[in-house]
């Protein structure tokens, strides 16, 4: 599952994008009533949920 390298890499990328370090600190953009950086952060979280859901559906972990 998570220990497979491609999956692990996807989560590392999502973690990197979830933290809004790459936004301009003076940004005043508002999307859908929220600061734009909040909207991107929420979207990344949604992608993380979808990826997690797909992994749960496809996993066959045997001890």
């Amino acid at each position: 599952m998570l220990t497979r390298f491609p999956t692990f890499l996807v989560y590392i990328i999502l973690l990197t994008l979830a933290v809004p370090w790459y936004w301009d600190s003076d940004s005043q953009l508002i999307w859908f009533g929220f600061p734009a950086w909040v909207v991107t952060s929420v979207l990344i979280s949604l992608i993380a949920s979808i990826v997690t859901c797909v992994i749960f559906l496809r996993s066959h972990d045997n001890t």
């Binding site: 599952m1 998570l2 989560y11 952060s41 990344i44 979280s45 993380a48 992994i55 996993s59 001890t63």
Partner: peptide, 17 residues
């Protein structure tokens, strides 16, 4: 939002086993 999602992601590492 991210840390509550992270809890479920960590379950991928051990919950099934």
């Amino acid at each position: 939002l991210h840390f509550m999602t992270a809890i479920i992601v960590v379950y991928l590492l051990f919950a099934e086993r």
